[in-house]
Amino acid sequence: MLKIPEETPPARRTILVTGATGAVGRHLVHQLAAAGHRVRALSRRPAQANLPREIEVVQGDLSDVASLVHAFEGVSAVHLITFTGDNGESLSNGDELIRLAERSGVRNATVLGGWDETSVEQALRGSSIGWTRLEPVEFMGNALEWAASIKEEGVVRMLATWPSAVVHEADIAAVAAVALTQEGHEGKRYPLSGPQALTPAERTAFIAMAVGRHLTFETLSEDQERERLRSYGYPEDYVEFGIQLARTPPVQAAIVVPTVEQITGRPGRTFASWALENAHAFRA
C-alpha cells in the first residue's frame, strides 16, 4: 500500500507584546501563554521583567527601531503601545516601526490607544497590516495613585468627583488577545469600559471594604489639586491638563459599554474585584 506522507504542520509563529511589563501588557503575556500561544515580551530592561521562565523576553526600545529587528523576527502579530520611555511621550517614529513590522511578516496588530492618535496609528492606516484600536476609558489601576494617602492617613483627596466607567486592565488584555488570535477584528475601534460608572468616593468605599478599614474621601480645591499632581513629579502642562480634566470630564467617561462581554464572551470585571486583588497595595 502506498503510504501518503503526512503534511508538515506550518511553523508556529510568535506574538510580540510591547509594553509587556505594563499594566495591560503583563496581563496579555500571561493570557496568551495560558492559551498556548508562543509569546515574546519586549522590555527595555529584560532583567527586571519578572515574567515566567517560558516567556521569551527580548530587549528593545520602541523609540529606536534599530533595537527592534530581533524582537520582530518571526512575528505574525503584535500588540503595540504608542508611547515611549518613562515620560510617556507619544512615539514619533510610527512609519519606521510599522515598516519593520511589515518586513518581518506581521499580519495583524492591536494598538492600545490614548487620548489622540499618534504616528503609529497613522502609519498602520497606510499599511498592509490588519489592526484593531483599543480605547479604554480609564484604568482601574489608576487608583493605585491613592495608595500612599490611604496607607498613611486613611483618606483619598482629589478635585474630580465625576463618575468613570473604569475598566480592569485584564479585560483590556482579554480583548487584545481575542483580536490578535481570531479573525474579524481588523479595522475595528473598540471602546472599553468596566461594568459600572463609579465616582472616586464610591471607589474609595470599595477599597475600604477590601482592606477592612474606614476610609474617607475629600474634595480638593484647584490649588490643592495642583499641589497633589506636582507631588507625583508631573510637569506643569500635565498638571494644568489634570485640572481641566477634573473640571470637564470627557463625555464618554461615565458611559458603560458592553464591548468586553461582546468580544470575550464574559462580563467585565468589577472594581470591587480589582480592589480585593490589589488590597495589599493599600494596607499600611
Score class of each variant (00 low, 15 high):
residue 1 M to N: 09
residue 2 L to E: 08
residue 4 I to P: 03
residue 7 E to D: 13
residue 9 P to K: 00
residue 10 P to L: 11
residue 12 R to M: 13
residue 13 R to Q: 15
residue 14 T to R: 13
residue 19 G to Q: 04
residue 23 A to C: 12
residue 24 V to A: 07
residue 24 V to R: 05
residue 29 V to A: 03
residue 34 A to P: 05
residue 42 L to K: 00
residue 42 L to M: 02
residue 43 S to Q: 01
residue 53 R to H: 09
residue 55 I to Y: 00
residue 59 Q to I: 00
residue 60 G to Q: 06
residue 60 G to D: 01
residue 62 L to V: 05
residue 63 S to W: 05
residue 64 D to M: 10
residue 64 D to E: 15
residue 66 A to V: 12
residue 66 A to N: 15
residue 67 S to K: 11
residue 67 S to E: 07
residue 70 H to Y: 08
residue 73 E to T: 15
residue 73 E to A: 15
residue 75 V to D: 01
residue 78 V to L: 10
residue 84 T to G: 13
residue 84 T to I: 10
residue 87 N to S: 12
residue 87 N to E: 11
residue 95 D to T: 13
residue 97 L to M: 09
residue 99 R to V: 10
residue 109 A to Y: 06
residue 110 T to M: 02
residue 112 L to Q: 02
residue 113 G to Q: 09
residue 114 G to N: 08
residue 116 D to T: 15
residue 123 A to D: 01
residue 129 I to H: 00
residue 132 T to A: 04
residue 132 T to F: 02
residue 134 L to H: 01
residue 138 E to G: 09
residue 138 E to A: 14
residue 139 F to M: 10
residue 139 F to R: 05
residue 140 M to T: 08
residue 142 N to A: 06
residue 143 A to V: 10
residue 151 K to T: 05
residue 152 E to H: 08
residue 153 E to I: 06
residue 158 M to G: 10
residue 162 W to K: 08
residue 163 P to Q: 06
residue 166 V to M: 11
residue 166 V to C: 11
residue 170 A to C: 10
residue 174 A to M: 08
residue 179 A to F: 02
residue 184 G to D: 04
residue 185 H to F: 15
residue 186 E to S: 13
residue 188 K to S: 14
residue 192 L to T: 03
residue 194 G to W: 02
residue 201 A to I: 12
residue 201 A to P: 03
residue 202 E to H: 10
residue 209 M to Q: 15
residue 215 L to N: 01
residue 215 L to I: 01
residue 218 E to R: 10
residue 223 D to H: 14
residue 230 R to D: 06
residue 234 Y to W: 14
residue 239 V to W: 03
residue 241 F to L: 11
residue 247 R to T: 15
residue 249 P to Y: 02
residue 249 P to N: 04
residue 251 V to E: 15
residue 251 V to R: 11
residue 252 Q to K: 13
residue 252 Q to E: 13
residue 257 V to D: 01
residue 257 V to Q: 01
residue 261 E to N: 05
residue 263 I to W: 07
residue 263 I to G: 01
residue 264 T to K: 03
residue 266 R to S: 00
residue 266 R to I: 00
residue 267 P to D: 00
residue 280 H to C: 09
residue 284 A to D: 12
